[in-house]
Amino acid sequence: MPNKFLFIILLAISIQSQAQAKETAADNYKAYCVQCHGMEGNGKGVNIRDMSVQPRDHTDAKSMSGRSDETLFKVIKEGGSSISKSVLMPPWAGTLSDEEIKDLVQHLRMMCKCKFGT
């Protein structure tokens, strides 16, 4: 009987620590994306002045609908060069979990108010 209680307590602690470890897409966007893609997600971040290639405007439904969710996942995880785009977009695999990247892709869909191919 005490073993069962211990198990439940351990399970609860583990669920809680997992919940703390995963950040929201909004916070991840604020931390890692805004520096280049801008406070408004329009590609006009504080870093862009000297860039040879400008960051994507995440509010542009036309260009964002040209990218599948899989491509967006890949470019966030592995960086711009993984889809033959600029190295200025870094890989975030060392920072974000796959689950967080999936959430970010959905966050981008919310920002562009678009889906792939629409």
């Binding site: 520096q35 280049c36 504080v46 870093n47 002045r49 000297d50 860039m51 190295v87 977009m89």
Partner: peptide, 20 residues
Amino acid sequence: DKFWGCMACHLIEPEYGGMS
């Protein structure tokens, strides 16, 4: 700058590079 793209976020001289 070109191969790794680090200038996106870092200044390499007072008036060239990123700010974050």
